[in-house]
Design a binder for these strands. Structure first.
Length: 726
DNA sequence: CCAAGGACGCTACG
DNA sequence: CGTAGCGTCC
């Protein structure tokens, strides 16, 4: 562990000096190679050789802030004053926070760059809950503290006891985990920064209990489709207030302070709306508890085999060149293989392939109603000409290379680890999403590449490329995955109370989709082919998602008519599922919104639209939301429960790596594997009942656990039915 | 002439 | 259904 950290640091230092790093084309690269452009980073401890540089850019706002008479600079206080300040903080009724970045912006400013280096934290301490008479100014007993949030490496710290660094840490802990009301816009970013800056001296478990209110989250919960993208937008929408213009220096400081006052008012406004809309419990018990979970997940470093990625990138590059050549030969001309426009010209204007398959309905593009070159279309054309197959393979390889190999490499820059950014408020269904890289979209199946050997090659070498296999646990640790089996289908059974569907889940053992296929096709279970089973699976989800016949036929590779028959026969077999769908649509028409199992809400403004297609879309969204949103509720609750168990235990050490909607991926110490697997499984399955949220599922939940020394090679783990509690 | 940004197409995941 | 992300084209 230590050796590796040292390794990383020295890697970062040397990379700054060498000018040989490739320039990063992607704007979301975590650490820039150009100090002049991106500014030196305050994260990760290392290299303070360029201290002079750091002062020039960011010193300005910090100086203005700390010279403002109302703002106390915590770092400048003597130990006695610091103790007093800690006490004052404890006594305050409300704390309102914002991070201050080195470029002079705060979290309240519109649109800041990603992973901006932080320099401090401004805290408004209110002694009472009132909003203050002049709306943007301080009350008589309110005070402001500035906390420097930059890491001083251990070797540079003064030898006083206790060290100033730890005083600041304790103040931060007081601020973040105090029992009073704490408000911060984008609280997760703050928590993550604190965990990163104090990586060595602050255990992630200590932020577990923190309950910071966040208007970004509350506003999203009130209306998950609302596009309000920054603090200003939110204020404009929910609060009446005077017009403001950007300012500099002391003016800017005043604006930040009044921003904090407005932040408090906004928070109160949104909280009362949450209460009146019946969303308070969901907010307080679920969404707020997600914040530390996500912050801890983001601050964890996931080790990646960078060298293997680079080799794979080259390999795929060669393969793509070969395929490109083949495509040009097959087409009889040179064209841009990545361009669907040019491919359309070749396939349908030059080769006129659509004229040779008039019996099949070729898909059209959504917006312009042109001939599509999508996978579904190429599959229909593949027997007529060699080109479609080549393009299909090219696209597969290209997707893997661009998104999952080069994409991940560009996320790593000078490091050999990654941490995705997790978003709580970007999905209308209540799911979370990931970026840089998008951990939730890494291919499940490995890709087979046949490598042509030019040097005296008779035998063709077959290489398998699997991006997931590049993710490696730290030494002495193992990945553990816990998967909610068929959550959506189980929820559909619960929501519809369909007796046949319920029976599938209540009867012990047996494969769900096999049973389903047998019930619905009317054959014995041992007569169900793997194809039948796969069909059953896809049909189920097409029903859940409300996919049309077109989409289903595309996925299944059967005619539209056949797809319709499949769907109809499914809904005939499970009549109460159909009834549930109709009931949900009816409700959404009457109320204008739908609710998930834990009371998550989606407004459907288009549900009564005169436009048929718009209205139908809203109806599909309604049904989809109830199922998908409920599944999201369960999965998030699982993350929170397990997080709280681990962080309140002194022996447990497992860390959450990623959430793949219905699957949780952990990194566990080798010796803890079995115990933790049992804990995870039983915790997740126990969510069948959540009394305080009124959840009591009519179906049991089933969780499958697997483990492995890379994410690409996970094998199922057998866990005894019950486990002894420690 | 170029650059940046939006619309569109395609495809990973669930 | 609905996320992210890569790529062209205008």
């Amino acid at each position: 562990m230590k050796a590796e950290e040292h390794c990383n640091e020295s890697a970062e230092k040397t990379s700054k000096q060498t000018a040989f790093c490739k320039p990063c084309k992607r704007q979301w690269a975590k650490c820039g190679t150009d100090p002049a452009k991106n500014g030196p980073k305050s994260f990760h401890g290392g290299a303070n050789t360029s201290e002079a540089l750091t002062q020039s850019q960011d010193g300005c706002l910090t100086a203005s802030l700390t010279s403002e008479p109302r703002v106390k600079d915590f770092g400048q206080l003597n130990p006695d004053e610091k103790m007093k300040m800690l006490e004052t903080t404890r006594q305050a009724k409300v704390l309102v926070l914002t991070m201050v970045y080195r470029d002079g912006t705060t979290q309240l400013d519109p649109e800041q760059k990603l992973t901006l280096p932080v320099c401090g934290l401004l805290v408004l301490m209110k002694s009472d809950l009132s909003c203050g008479t002049p709306e943007d100014s301080l009350g008589p007993n309110d005070s402001l503290v500035y906390l420097k949030l930059e890491h001083t490496p251990a070797w540079a710290q003064q030898q006083t006891h206790p060290s100033p660094e730890l005083f600041t840490r304790d103040m931060l802990l007081q601020v973040l985990t105090g029992s009073q009301l704490v408000v911060c816009y984008k609280a997760k970013d703050l928590l993550r920064s604190v965990l990163q800056v104090y990586r060595r001296e602050l255990n992630w478990k200590r932020v577990a209990g923190c309950h910071i209110q966040d208007p970004q989250v509350s506003a999203w919960l009130l209306d998950p489709t609302d596009p309000s993208s920054c603090f200003q937008d939110l204020l404009n929408k929910h609060c009446r207030r005077p017009h403001t213009t950007p300012a500099l220096g002391a003016q800017k400081v005043s604006q930040i302070i009044s921003g904090l006052c407005w932040l408090y008012r906004l928070n109160m406004k949104l909280c009362s709306q949450l209460q009146s809309q019946g969303l308070w419990k969901l907010y307080s018990d679920m969404e707020l508890n997600m914040i530390p979970v996500l912050a801890a997940m983001e601050s964890h470093r996931i080790h990646v085999d960078k060298e293997a990625l680079k080799k794979t990138s080259d390999l795929l590059g060669t393969k793509m060149k070969q395929l490109e050549k083949e495509a040009h030969q097959a087409a009889g001309q040179i064209f841009l293989v990545t361009s669907s426009t040019q491919l359309r010209t070749v396939l349908f204007e030059k080769l006129r392939l659509h004229e040779r398959c008039e019996n099949k309905k070729l898909p059209k593009t959504i917006n312009k109603q042109q001939q599509s070159t999508s996978e579904a279309a190429l599959l229909l054309l593949q027997d007529l000409h060699p080109l479609p197959k080549i393009i299909l393979e090219y696209r597969q390889v290209h997707k893997i290379k661009s998104t999952f190999v080069d994409g991940i490499l560009s996320c790593m820059m000078c490091k050999n680890y990654i941490s995705s950014t997790w978003h709580q408020t970007s999905a209308v269904t209540g799911r979370i999403s990931a970026k840089h890289p998008n951990f939730q979209a890494l291919p499940r199946q490995p890709l087979q590449i046949t490598k042509k050997q030019y040097v005296q090659g008779k035998e063709e070498e077959v290489v398998t490329v699997h991006p997931r296999a590049m993710f490696i646990p730290h030494e002495g640790w193992t990945f553990l995955a816990a998967d909610f089996c068929q959550v959506e289908l189980r929820l559909l059974a619960h929501l519809s109370s369909d007796p046949e569907l319920l029976r599938i889940f209540t009867s012990p053992q047996a494969d769900v989709f096999t049973m389903l296929a047998s019930q619905w096709k009317g054959v014995r279970e041992d007569e169900v082919t793997s194809e039948d089973r796969e069909h059953a699976k896809r049909i189920v989800y097409s029903v859940v998602y409300g996919a049309g016949r077109e989409r289903l036929s595309g996925i299944l590779g059967v005619s539209t008519e056949q797809a319709r028959l499949f769907q109809d026969s499914f809904l005939q077999t499970y009549r109460d599922v159909q009834a549930f769908i109709q009931r949900t649509i009816q409700q959404s028409h009457k109320q204008g919104y739908v609710l998930s199992i834990m009371g998550r809400r989606r407004n459907l403004p288009n549900i009564n639209s005169p436009d048929w297609s718009i209205r139908m879309q809203a109806e599909r969204q309604a049904v989809n939301f109830v199922v998908q949103g409920s599944a999201a509720d369960l999965c998030k609750m699982a993350m929170i429960r397990i997080f709280n168990l681990v962080s309140s235990s002194s022996s447990l050490s497992a860390r959450l790596i990623a959430q793949l909607h219905d699957e949780l991926l952990y990194e566990v110490e080798d010796s803890h594997l079995e115990q933790f697997a049992a804990l995870v499984k039983s915790t997740m399955e126990s969510l069948q009942r959540i009394d305080h949220l009124g959840v009591h599922l009519k179906v049991p939940l089933k969780v499958a656990v697997s483990s492995g020394k890379s994410w690409g090679s996970m094998s199922e783990l057998n866990i005894p039915l019950t486990f002894p509690s420690p």
